[in-house]
Lab assay of single mutants.
Amino acid sequence: QAPETKIVDKSRVACDGGEGALGHPRVWLQIPEDTGWVECPYCDCKYVLKGSKADAL
């Protein structure tokens, strides 16, 4: 199944896999201003900063 994409309001987000005990260790991710998105290294969930150029795609 394809990784999930989430639109977020802040450039710093936490990801834990979203499945409680079945998820992964919580990691904090920083969305770079130049790209407007970041992917979780564990679950490949893509976080897109709302209003960024990546959000316009």
Score class of each variant (00 low, 15 high):
G17H: 02
A54H: 07
A54C: 14
L49T: 13
Q30G: 02
K46D: 13
E33R: 10
K46E: 08
P41C: 08
L49K: 12
L49Q: 10
D16P: 05
P3V: 11
K50M: 09
C40F: 12
L29K: 02
E33H: 08
G17R: 01
A2L: 14
P3F: 13
C45R: 15
W28K: 00
K50G: 08
D9W: 04
P41S: 05
A14V: 08
P32S: 06
G36T: 03
W28E: 00
W28T: 00
V8I: 06
K53S: 09
W37A: 04
L29Y: 05
G17P: 04
K6V: 15
T5W: 15
V8W: 05
K6I: 14
G23I: 10
Q30C: 13
W37N: 02
A21K: 10
G17M: 04
K50H: 08
P3E: 09
Q30R: 10
G23P: 06
L57W: 10
V48H: 04
I31P: 04
D9L: 13
D34F: 07
W37K: 03
A21H: 08
T35Y: 05
I31V: 01
S11C: 09
L49D: 14
I31Q: 01
V27S: 02
A56T: 14
R12M: 11
A2F: 13
G51C: 14
Q1D: 09
A54N: 05
L57G: 12
D34W: 08
I31L: 02
C40L: 09
D34H: 08
A14R: 05
G18E: 06
W37R: 01
A21W: 08
P3D: 08
I31W: 02
L57V: 11
V27K: 03
R12Q: 11
W37P: 01
A2R: 14
P41R: 05
E19A: 13
D9Q: 09
E4H: 15
D34V: 07
W37T: 03
C45Y: 15
P25G: 05
C45G: 15
A21V: 11
V48G: 01
P3H: 15
D16G: 03
G23H: 09
R12N: 09
L29W: 05
W28R: 00
K46L: 09
P3L: 11
Y42D: 04
D9H: 11
E33M: 09
E4I: 15
K53Y: 08
T5I: 14
D9E: 12
D34A: 09
K6R: 12
R12S: 09
P32F: 03
K50P: 08
L29P: 00
Y42M: 14
G20W: 06
E39L: 14
I7A: 05
L22C: 01
